[in-house]
């Protein structure tokens, strides 16, 4: 694990999300958004332990996963802004953001919608005899959808190369997990499908990385599905307008003590100086601002682009050997 690289990725995610938040507060973005501020360690820790050719299926709270996978933040901004230059030509936006060249099979606007798709990608890997794996992020809220149970079951009976990563941030919108589940741990549910699981501190990127690395290798070697439950916390509201009445400011303050970024800085101070860290911060902040400026100067889609493309043509040649 290259701590400096991890730190830079986590910082990019934090600054990117803060910029998005700022843009919303100024009314400069349409639709809605779900920020992952506070949850950066799960994104960089999990994705950092994967190979480039591993598939990722993400959630509505997916910017961090995508940035960790190596996406160009200018093109993410373009997508959020509904610009032609976006990864999905501005048609998908924040909750339908797919980057096939990175094997990133989409953020997902339907809670629990990505779980079976990830199982499908894993079945594809297995049928093709490849040694990559599929990774499926989901929230603890999604574990009450039928798709969670159905997908874990299929992954289990077919011994699929899939890693389920539950980012348990305790709240699904306003709903506390302990109010809608008899038990606090999603990992318990994996046991009923014979799927091994671990519960880890999701605020510690190093811990997340090491666990993922170990478990992913096992899956890669034919060990079958596994589940990681990362206990984490979103520092911000659920989406753009959330007064956070369902939790206390004290609870928030306690979790902020566990902010993954200062933790990484402490580690980094063993190898570089505080001054150098400040330089890195400034340069990443500037690159996020620059990316936004480039994106916002892009073009809006024309009427033809809005109206074409509902159907793929037979002669369409698409990447990934899809067609």
């Amino acid at each position: 694990m290259d701590i400096l690289e991890f730190y830079k990725k986590a910082l990019t995610i934090r600054f990117f999300e803060e910029k998005v938040d700022w843009l919303f507060s100024r009314g400069l973005l349409g639709g809605t958004t779900h920020l992952c501020i506070g949850q950066e360690a799960t994104a960089v820790g999990v994705v950092g332990a994967l190979r480039q050719d591993d598939y990722i299926v993400s959630t509505h709270r997916g910017h961090g996963h995508l940035i960790a996978k190596g996406a160009d933040i200018t093109k993410i901004f373009s997508e959020l802004l509904g610009k032609r230059e976006g990864y999905c030509k501005g048609r998908g936006g924040t909750q339908h953001l797919c980057v096939m060249e990175l094997n990133f099979l989409g953020t997902n606007g339907i809670t629990g919608g990505g779980l079976p798709i990830a199982a499908g990608a894993a079945l594809s890997i297995k049928l093709s005899g490849e040694d990559r794996i599929a990774v499926c992020f989901f929230g603890e809220g999604a574990s009450n959808q039928g798709t969670f149970h159905e997908s874990l079951n299929m992954a289990s009976i077919w011994n699929l190369p899939i890693l389920f990563v539950c980012e348990n941030n305790m709240y699904a919108m306003s709903t506390r997990f302990s109010d809608i589940s008899k038990f606090d741990d999603v990992a318990l549910r994996a046991a009923s499908f014979g799927i091994p699981s671990v519960i880890i501190d999701g605020m510690d990127a190093g811990r997340v990385f090491e666990n993922t690395k170990k478990i992913a290798e096992k899956i890669r070697q034919g060990g079958g599905p596994a589940l990681i439950e990362a206990k984490t916390y979103r520092f911000c509201g659920h989406s753009k307008s959330d007064a956070r009445l369902y939790r206390t400011r004290e609870e928030e303050a306690a979790w902020k003590q566990k902010d993954p970024l200062p933790k990484m800085e402490l580690k980094l101070l063993e190898v570089i100086s505080q001054g150098e860290i400040e330089v890195i911060k400034r340069s990443i902040k500037a690159s996020v601002d620059d990316a936004y400026e480039v994106a916002v100067a892009g073009e809006d889609p024309g009427v033809e682009e809005a109206l074409e493309g509902a159907y793929a043509q037979r002669e369409d040649l698409l990447p990934q050997g899809n067609i």
Binding site: G113, P116, A119, G120, S124, L127, E150, S151, N322
Partner: peptide, 17 residues
């Protein structure tokens, strides 16, 4: 599991099947 095996089909189709 109609809901999810249809999703499995979607995942398979996005990855080359």
């Amino acid at each position: 599991s109609e809901g999810s095996f249809t999703g499995v089909a979607v995942g398979l189709s996005m990855t080359g099947y």
